[in-house]
Amino acid sequence: MLSKEAIQKIDYELTKYPGNQRQAAVMSALRIVQTERGWLSNESITEVAQYLGMPEIAAMEVATFYNMYDLAPVGKYKISVCTNISCMLRDSDQIVNHLKTKLGVGFNEVTADGKYSLKEGECMGACGGAPLMIVNNHTMHEFLTPEKVDEILDDLQ
């Protein structure tokens, strides 16, 4: 069951669209539910589809099309590092390697304590701050150095 808070947030998103276009809010709705639950299970997708009155498979299409939806459990902190060209030119490799060694996991893996998972991201539209990463989809950290990564990880307790 969608939580009261989630429904409230989804209802706010629905105000942006004509009343007969509830499906339009699916991107937000999936985001809201994922933020609340950590990832999108099939049940979550079903609930969102039902709440918006759209075919479940259409909600599944959306959930599987956009990178930032997680269809499998991720760590408490999901770290996505951009490795695209602008970041790569500014040594995102070094950041990735640092993270991999420090966390002891590779891309698309979760640390044994379930705390972190690591993802390779595509361009995040902030290449001026390369190299960079986002934590849990919504917090961006730019101009990374291994030292700065350490500081950030220390703050994620």
Partner: peptide, 11 residues
């Protein structure tokens, strides 16, 4: 929606 690598002006 700028997502082409190297593009970050609209942000």
């Amino acid at each position: 929606d700028e997502g082409e690598p190297g593009t970050f002006k609209d942000r």
